Amino acid sequence: MMMEIAVPGMTEYLLIENAQHADRFAQLISHRIPFTDIEHAFDLTLTPGAAEKVVVTFD
């Protein structure tokens, strides 16, 4: 997470929920981009409607 705008304790709650329901949260990810293509990942995040959630991987 780069930034949080939420009520106190929300990050901890979401981390626990994510660990318990990883399959549900995985459906929110629209793109998995390798770090070697980081510019493409930024382009996706900066283009309205191009992606829901972008995850950069370090494989």
Score class of each variant (00 low, 15 high):
Y13W: 11
Q27P: 09
H21M: 03
Y13C: 09
A50G: 04
Y13Q: 13
N18C: 14
E4L: 10
Q27E: 15
I5Y: 15
F42P: 06
M10P: 00
A41I: 07
L44C: 03
F25Y: 13
A19S: 08
M3Y: 09
E39W: 07
D43K: 14
V54W: 01
L46H: 12
H31F: 00
E17P: 06
A51P: 00
D59G: 11
P34F: 00
E17F: 05
R32H: 11
T47A: 03
L44T: 01
I33T: 04
L28R: 13
P8R: 09
A6V: 05
T57S: 14
T57L: 08
I16L: 14
V7T: 14
N18L: 15
D59P: 15
I5V: 15
H21C: 05
G49F: 04
I29R: 06
M1D: 07
P34W: 00
D23Y: 01
L15G: 06
K53Q: 15
T36Q: 13
V56E: 05
G9W: 03
F25Q: 02
L15Y: 10
N18I: 15
R24W: 08
T11P: 02
I5D: 12
A41R: 00
H40R: 10
P48F: 06
T11F: 15
A41W: 02
R32I: 08
K53P: 02
E39V: 14
F58H: 14
T47V: 02
L28V: 10
P8L: 12
